[in-house]
Simulated scan of single mutants.
Amino acid sequence: MDITTGERLKIARQRAGLSQRALAKKAGVGNATVSLIESDRINPSVSALKRILDAIAMPLSDFFAIDEKASEEKVFKAGSLTEIGRGGISFRQIGKDLSGRALQLLYETYQPGADTGKIMLRHEGEEAGFVISGRIELTIGSTLHILNAGDAYYFKSAEPHRFRNATARPAVIVSACTPPTF
């Protein structure tokens, strides 16, 4: 069953026992924002969606696995990876439902000009990755790092962070997050 972001958010919010107004307040966003997302009238950035999901303690991976059955697959073909990205960023995740798992592995593609959003990401755990191609700006706290193909990173995900492709060519990263809270 292929459901929209808005439908998924409504299901997640209802499972958490929250009204739209309560979720908006808890997430620090306007009441209309939750309503507009649930009605599929706006498509939130990765950081905005993450902020809303943090208010109900739900990782992005679990959000995009709503109404999909957990799999015990061991091998994943390129076309079977779960897309959890938005707006110029593709996050292709190995596996659909990562609840109960210790690791999240992503194949990330940032189109020219794409970034994870003005609000910096923060979540539990640690993350690490390799830049496979292109160039990425990684901001951790107040420090900007320019990473090129072959460069890598490793940091505690609770530190505010943001990824941005400021070039005219796509950038590709392979990353891991543990536990899968992104």
Rank of each mutant, 00 (worst) to 15 (best):
M1N: 08
M1H: 07
I3Q: 11
I3T: 13
T5Y: 03
L9W: 04
I11S: 08
R13M: 02
Q14A: 11
Q14F: 03
R15G: 06
A16I: 05
A16S: 14
G17C: 13
L18D: 06
S19N: 09
R21M: 08
A22C: 07
L23F: 04
K25Q: 14
K26H: 11
K26T: 09
K26E: 11
K26P: 09
V29T: 08
V29W: 02
T33F: 00
S35F: 05
S35A: 13
E38A: 02
S39N: 12
S39E: 04
R41M: 02
I42D: 01
I42R: 00
I42L: 01
I42G: 00
P44K: 04
S45W: 01
S45R: 03
V46C: 05
S47W: 00
S47F: 00
L49F: 03
R51H: 11
R51I: 15
R51C: 12
I52Y: 02
L53S: 04
D54M: 08
A55G: 06
A55N: 08
I56Q: 09
I56G: 06
L60V: 03
S61W: 00
S61T: 12
F63W: 09
F63H: 09
I66G: 08
E68H: 13
A70W: 07
E72A: 14
E73Y: 08
V75M: 12
K77P: 02
A78T: 13
A78W: 11
T82D: 06
I84Q: 02
G87Y: 00
I94F: 10
G95D: 07
G100M: 14
A102Q: 13
A102R: 15
L103R: 09
Q104V: 08
Q104S: 13
Q104G: 10
L106Q: 10
Y110A: 11
G113D: 04
A114T: 05
D115W: 09
G117I: 01
M120K: 13
L121E: 07
H123I: 03
E124T: 11
G125Y: 04
E126L: 03
A128F: 10
F130T: 09
F130N: 13
V131Q: 01
I132E: 02
I132S: 09
S133R: 07
S133T: 01
R135W: 00
I136T: 03
I136G: 02
E137D: 10
T139P: 06
S142N: 14
S142T: 12
T143C: 02
T143E: 10
L147I: 11
A149I: 03
G150K: 13
D151S: 14
A152V: 05
F155W: 04
S157A: 12
S157I: 00
S157W: 01
A158L: 13
A158V: 13
E159L: 07
E159D: 03
R162W: 06
N165W: 02
N165P: 01
A166Q: 14
A168R: 12
R169M: 03
V174N: 04
S175M: 14
S175R: 15
C177T: 12
T178S: 14
P179Q: 12
P179H: 12
